[in-house]
């Protein structure tokens, strides 16, 4: 059996009990970390996220995690980025315009349009563009005010509709980014986490 220890970046604010329980149900151990070396070497890394873009990047910079995260993402080693975590992969966000993101993708984060209630709060349909292996069509639980409006180059995406289409998830090899919370998205979300772990197994 491959090493299924999942290192979760400890941002100090994200409530991760549900995430830990979700991985326990999939027989994966979790460990909270802010250690750059542990993150670089981890079989699986999770970038959770609650809070603002600027504060999120500040936490990563202060803990010297920007470098190891960028390396993992460039090398396509298993990373799961959730909610704000997904947005941190962008070069910038309307939420905190002067702060630089991880720049994994080229599309900047925008706020939802004014004609819908913000934040988006609840279950929305996720439609997978094509079969990338991880993402499937189903319903997921969201709590967000910002999103990626367009598909980045080279990623297989899933879209949802809220004041127009936005990118609700994207995958590239074993890197998976979800605007929704897979750990709170019922069996559909649990199956997505399982496929992500399995794709990581294949890599080892």
């Amino acid at each position: 059996m491959a090493d299924r220890t999942v290192h979760i970046v400890d941002t100090g604010v994200a409530n991760i009990a549900s995430l830990q329980a979700a991985f326990r149900r999939l027989d994966a151990e979790t460990q909270l970390t802010t250690d750059p070396d542990a993150l670089a070497e981890a079989a699986y890394a999770v970038l959770p996220g609650v809070g603002a873009f600027g504060a999120g990047m500040g936490t990563l910079r202060d803990a010297d995690l920007v470098g190891p995260l960028r390396t993992r993402l460039d090398d396509l080693r298993p990373v799961l980025a959730i909610c704000l975590g997904m947005q941190l992969l962008a070069p910038s966000s309307e939420e905190t315009p002067d702060v630089e993101g991880l720049e994994t993708v080229e599309v900047a984060v925008e706020r939802f349009p004014d004609d819908v209630r913000v934040p988006q709060f609840g279950w929305n349909e996720v439609r997978a563009d094509s079969d990338g292996g991880l993402l499937e069509t189903g319903y997921a639980y969201f709590a967000n005010s910002y999103c990626l409006p367009d598909a980045p180059d080279g990623w297989t995406c899933a879209r949802s509709e809220y004041g127009g289409d936005f990118i609700s998830a994207m995958e590239h090899g074993p890197v998976l980014a979800c605007q929704f919370h897979p750990e709170l998205s019922g069996r559909w979300g649990s199956n997505l986490l399982r496929r992500w772990l399995e794709r990581g197994d294949d890599q080892c």
Partner: peptide
């Protein structure tokens, strides 16, 4: 409850 619950609580 959390141990088996994969929806918001």
């Amino acid at each position: 409850i959390r141990e088996h619950l994969a929806i918001p609580l």
